[in-house]
Design a binder for these strands. Structure first.
Length: 939
RNA sequence: GCCUCAGUGGCGGAAUCGGUAGACGCACAGGACUUAAAAUCCUGCGUGAGUUAAAUCACGUGUCGGUUCAAGUCCGACCUGAGGCACCA
């Protein structure tokens, strides 16, 4: 047992006294490496064992890179504006600054104990006026460029928190913090026009080394959809409205239109007799919170407003409805409804009995040249009493099918179906239920040697009684009539047409897939994509609409009605015009208040009477009293680390060009769309301004997985007895053990449960290492060839694994090496030093100690050169190969580098056990994979 | 409902390109040391059959099917779990 307390205190002091990890950012002589952690939020709760996961990971890479000769920037700071400090201020009437600074102090101590090699001279915090001066400055630039602006828009208002929230701060209609209800409210708000950057943010994702899931989440959040705007004239009114659709190919199937209740045209085009209905509906839907809207989305609601729109492609009059399933904030707030081919429209049309026109036909079978066309039916008959369906079993001549047949000339689908059912099965007491979507089917009839292309209509009947007449069959019709249940149909009916028809019969849903167009004049016969292209061409030529790209991403609401945030550096004059403060007036510092709580829904800064009013350019003006959201300060902090004390610019350009982008960024997946999207946008903007030379700030991103308590449940308030404090572990087992254990638990990205015995195992390994160096007396200046291969393998694997953040497998390799050394009597000094260097990034304290005390070096190990390996030592003179017979391992052979494949085969066949399997059998195939196996197939 | 990821011993987890499944650690069992215990060191450890012991054989990576000489790995369908999005037209 080594004394971890003594060793760790000693080296912690050494690193601080010597500023071991101070970065000289101006030293451009070495390659750079920028390793970044998501900076913590200094809440009152201390870090638990889950937080350091990411910190230790970046620290390991930073330490290795330093030893590999990189100039490493590895900073930390605090995201120190935000809600808990605000609530503390409201409760106590004290300035949140003191609370924040105290929390920062606690966390700083915790982080230092973890042995993280940060350059503490670069620490920044977002609430520091010297820092937020530049947050305000960037905002000001965006304001001047029209990117930050005030607009009137529906916002997420949280009454409980007394503030508006951004979309990513609202989860399931409730506030992310606190879980309070959020309602939609029209307000004048500061926003950042992030949709202007939608395309850049989308295309920029392609080259990033990020988790695919995060990139996908950002793509979905941006929500690009390519479609068309189509203009609809309102009959009897001199008005037009525009809809956005991604399916303009289905325009001939539009049977009604829907406007969102908030649409500006609604009041103008509602007919007199419908005014009251509309007024009531609008009132109801405006009262719903977002939560209620989503909860109530099971059942569609809406009202007809009395007027009609003209379908621009065929002049047909179609009714206009309003419904809250159409959102005011997406697209144009109006849609054309095609119930046959959109599930929401289908549901709505079914409920309100609106016409459904099929314009797209699913295609089954394979089309063939020279087909004969037929119209036909497939009839499904359901016997409710026995829960069975009527089928015809053709056995080897087609298997199980439903009743089917060809329509005679001028015969309706219904008549045809009734006739066929009667002829083939005799049943004639039926109730017609519905006709389903038509299917375009292609098949080859063996008995007639002909290819057919049929348009098949599906029909569903209920059996009313068992009444039967005699069947009327042709000679070649040889089958059994059988009633079977649903499961049997699903497993036994193989014919695509019949199975699809059955699904259409029993499921009430729209036909969403691709197919060929029908009932669509110039689109008939085209598939979905071709029809979309042709329709857009048609709309544009006739001035009825145009191609349009739409994004789901909306303006980033950039003001909070709170105190503890960056003041927005804008003033408003009495005439309503606004102006940004001059650069010399930045930072605009938060004033102290007597009361940190806003009154009557006003921001707290409204209470700062002296601060609020200023004279600018000789005119009276009032300051903006909202503050910026938490995501403001974190959108550019990684730039400030590079040059944290610069008072003249946000950071020196030469330094920015050298150090950006961040080479490795590790943080939780909860920031996938919020912070990570905003930071990318600010970085892209600063690139456009020429302040940065790169567009994307984070080259490589990794999310650390969550650490669960020993009970397998998330560490947190709910199970306080399962929360692990890293400082407790550090005290009992040492920080080195803590770091080693956390990294050994499993892949960085995975979710992992804590295990106390696992920690003890990690400590045992460090004790074993310590004993190896201090008690075993094996370290020697002589060589030991027995360790050559394993040492070089270890250097290779550990180096590669650290690079790929595969810490668990790297540590496993270090253990394998130590086990091997224990079996030897001589531990060559060169290998002893190399091993300590390999272990140093994970367990820095014990390795510094051994480097100093046992290996006798005066300096820190932190800048010693990283071990290299000798490729030639990795190779064996002989190696083992597996012999497989019919895919099963039946023996092994030992071969040398110059054994030929023929010799390998011969050796393989010579094994006794192999002989048992091949003697008297015919060898069909022999496969030799050098260095792996010999595979023999016998019969 | 849609998107993304995952599912391997008693447990955490390993396994480049398809090529000996279960590395390493924990737990457990046996042994050595010890008056004894702890610590340490050594050995064993997927399940079943087989044997004094081996050899050997069968089964085995969520389920079912497919491709292949060969599948944890590739393909198809499904089940379960995690995260995200959700009336986005």
């Amino acid at each position: 047992m080594y004394d971890h307390i003594e060793i760790e205190n000693k080296w912690k002091k050494y690193w601080e006294d010597n500023k071991t990890f101070k970065t000289d950012v101006w030293d451009f002589s070495k390659p750079k490496f920028y390793a970044l952690d998501m900076f913590p939020y200094p809440s009152g709760v201390a870090l638990h064992a889950g937080h350091p996961f990411g910190y230790v990971a970046t620290d390991i890479v930073s330490r290795m890179k330093r030893m590999q000769g990189y100039n490493v920037l590895h900073p930390i700071g605090f995201d120190s504006f935000g809600l808990p400090a605000e609530q503390f201020a409201i409760k106590t009437g004290k300035h949140p600054n003191g609370f924040t600074e105290a929390n920062m102090k606690t966390m700083r101590l915790q982080l230092k104990t973890l042995g993280l090699s940060y350059d503490w001279d670069r620490e920044i915090s977002t609430h520091d006026p010297k820092y937020y001066k530049w947050t305000q400055w960037i905002f000001k630039k965006m304001y001047e460029d029209g990117l930050a602006k005030q607009i009137n828009m529906p916002v997420n208002w949280c009454e409980e928190l007394g503030t508006v929230l951004a979309n990513d701060e609202v989860i399931d209609g409730k506030s992310e913090r606190g879980g309070y209800p959020v309602v939609r409210k029209n307000m004048k708000q500061w926003v950042i026009d992030i949709p202007k950057y939608a395309e850049k943010l989308l295309s920029g994702l392609n080259d990033l080394d990020w988790p695919e899931s995060t990139k996908e989440m950002q793509r979905n959040w941006i929500g690009k959809s390519i479609g068309a705007l189509v203009d609809f004239k309102v009959d009897n009114f001199n008005e037009t409205f525009t809809v956005f659709t991604t399916r303009c190919d289905t325009l001939f199937g539009a049977t009604y239109c829907v406007l969102s209740p908030e649409h500006e045209l609604v009041d103008k085009i509602t007919t007199e007799d419908k005014k009251e209905d509309v007024r009531k509906y609008k009132e109801e839907s405006s009262k719903k919170t977002d939560l209620e809207r989503t909860e109530l989305n099971k059942e569609k609601t809406g009202v007809f407003i009395g007027s009609y729109a003209i379908n621009p492609v065929n002049g047909k009059k179609i009714p206009i409805w309003i419904s809250d399933y159409v959102l005011a904030s997406y697209g144009t707030g109006a849609i054309m409804a095609v119930p046959a081919h959109d599930s929401r429209d289908y549901e709505f049309a079914k409920k309100f009995n609106i016409e459904i026109i099929q314009v797209l036909e699913e295609v089954t079978g394979t089309p063939h040249e020279g087909e004969t066309h037929k119209d036909s039916i497939v009839a499904v008959v359901y016997d409710k009493k026995n829960d069975k369906y009527l089928t015809i079993n053709w056995k080897e001549n087609g298997g199980r099918l439903f009743v089917g047949g060809t329509r005679k000339e001028n015969e309706s689908a219904l008549d045809c179906a009734l006739r066929e059912i009667k002829e083939e099965t005799g049943y004639d007491d039926l109730e017609f239920v519905k006709e389903t979507f038509k299917i375009n089917h292609h098949y080859y009839a063996y008995n007639k040697d002909k290819y057919f292309e049929i348009e098949s209509t599906g029909l569903l009947f209920n059996l009313k009684s068992d009444h039967k007449v005699a069947q009327n069959l042709d000679d070649d019709e040889n089958f059994i009539v059988e009633w079977v249940n649903k499961d049997q149909i699903e497993s036994e009916v193989k014919d695509e047409l019949h199975l699809k028809t059955f699904n259409y019969c029993i499921n009430e849903e729209a036909m969403i897939g691709d197919g060929i167009h029908i009932n669509s004049e110039f689109l008939n016969g085209l598939n979905k994509q071709d029809a979309i292209d042709k329709m857009i061409e048609f709309l544009e030529k006739n001035n009825l609409g145009k191609k349009k790209i739409n994004y789901r991403l909306r303006e980033w609401i950039f003001a909070r009605q709170r105190y503890w945030g960056e003041p927005i550096p804008i003033v408003e004059f009495e005439d309503g015009t606004t102006k940004a403060l001059d650069d010399k007036d930045l930072p605009l510092v938060l004033p102290e208040l007597d009361d940190y709580k806003g009154k009557n829904g006003n921001p707290p800064l409204e209470n700062a009477e002296d601060w609020k009013y200023v004279t600018i350019d000789g005119k009276k003006a009032k300051r903006e009293t909202s503050t910026m959201p938490g995501s403001a300060g974190s959108s550019w902090y990684f730039l400030r680390y590079i040059d944290p004390n610069n008072d003249n610019e946000l950071a020196n350009k030469q330094l920015l060009d050298y150090w950006m982008p961040v080479d490795l960024y590790v943080g939780g997946p909860e920031h996938a769309v919020g912070h990570l999207l905003y930071a990318r946008m600010w970085n892209n903007y600063l690139y456009d301004k020429g302040i940065l030379s790169i567009k994307e700030p984070f080259k490589r991103l990794v999310h650390q997985g969550m650490l669960l308590g020993a009970n397998g449940v998330k560490m947190g308030k709910r199970f306080p007895e399962y929360v692990i404090n890293p400082n407790d572990i550090a005290k009992k087992f040492g920080t080195d053990t803590f770091r080693l254990y956390e990294m050994f638990m499993g892949p960085l990205e995975a979710e992992k449960p804590w295990s106390d015995s696992g920690v003890e195992g990690a400590r045992k390994f460090l004790d074993r290492v310590y004993r190896l160096y201090t008690q075993e007396n094996k370290i020697s200046d002589s060589e030991n060839p027995n360790l050559d291969k394993i040492y070089n393998q270890t250097v290779k694997k550990v180096t590669e694994d650290y690079e790929n953040l595969g810490f668990n497998t790297a540590i496993s390799q270090l253990m394998i090496f130590v086990n091997a050394v224990y079996k030897e009597d001589i531990f060559p000094r060169k290998y002893a030093e190399g091993f300590i260097k390999l272990l140093n990034p994970v367990s820095p304290y014990i390795t510094e100690e051994l480097w100093n005390k046992v290996l006798g070096y005066d300096n820190t190990i932190s800048y010693e050169s990283w071990p290299t390996y000798d490729e030639s030592k990795l190779k064996d003179e002989t190696y083992q190969m597996v012999v497989q017979i019919n895919g099963k391992v039946r023996g092994k052979i030992e071969v040398s580098m110059d054994t030929t494949e023929e010799e390998m085969k011969k050796l393989a066949k010579n094994i006794d056990n192999v002989k048992n399997y091949i003697d008297g059998k015919e060898i069909i195939k022999e496969v030799v994979v050098p260095k792996k196996l010999v595979s023999i197939v016998v019969k």
